[in-house]
Design a protein around this nucleic acid. Structure first.
Length: 196
DNA sequence: TGCCCGATTAACT
DNA sequence: GTTAATCGGGCAA
């Protein structure tokens, strides 16, 4: 586990922050693991919540970088995002999957399921396992209960199209740790000769 | 105001 | 493969 990430890490474009998060460690109250999958949502992106302007729900996205934007998805699940630069632009990175490394028993308890591979494979499962909900919307990522640590050395990062959206779905702004068994879905194989 | 849809998941067939 | 659970935003009226 590398040095702890500060606010400066998030003062960059989502397109830089998102791939840099792969392999980093995310802990919430000491529970969490390695980030293996994220998606970038740029403010110019029709799929971004901020695209149509500020609302009470997405207000945090319009604030400073380095804070958590937590929202309810499909009326049921919670999803965790990291706000990035430039400040006020409302760009963020969605955290989609972790490889559990810390507090696994507690995560199992919260999830009510034992399959370690699925504990944090997907944005809703991840928040359930870490105990993150709307109460934590707007918290800083560089101080407790959050703690983020940079990865050590290089990792194999793959990119692909994002999941579960219909707008701008083909933009390859999903990033993952190559061949990780903890992804919410595998990345499509890179075809040297794509179909016409 | 009412209607539709979504950055999802799990339990079905 | 299909569907229910369930809430907030956007948009039309």
């Amino acid at each position: 586990m590398g040095r702890q990430l500060t606010a400066a890490f998030f003062r960059r474009s989502v397109h830089q922050v998102a791939p840099d998060l792969i392999g980093a460690t995310l802990l919430f109250d000491g529970v969490g693991g390695r980030i293996v999958e994220v998606e970038a949502y740029h403010h110019t992106d029709p799929a971004a919540h901020s695209y149509h302007g500020p609302t009470p729900r997405n207000a945090v996205m319009f604030g400073p970088p380095g804070f958590a934007y937590v929202y309810r998805s499909y009326g049921i699940h919670w999803c965790l995002n990291f706000v990035c630069e430039p400040e006020g632009s409302a760009s963020a990175v969605l955290v989609r999957a972790l490889e559990p490394t810390a507090g696994v028993p507690q995560m199992r308890r919260r999830r009510g399921r034992s399959d370690e591979r699925l504990l944090c494979a997907g944005p809703g499962r991840l928040c359930q396992a870490l105990g993150i909900s709307g109460r934590h919307n707007g918290l800083a990522l560089f101080e407790p209960p959050f703690a983020l640590f940079a990865r050590n050395g290089d990792v194999a990062v793959v990119a692909g199209r994002r999941i579960g959206i219909t707008k701008a779905a083909t933009r390859p702004w999903r990033y993952g740790l190559k061949n990780s068994p903890f992804l919410s879905k595998p990345f499509a194989a890179v075809s040297r000769r794509p179909k016409p």
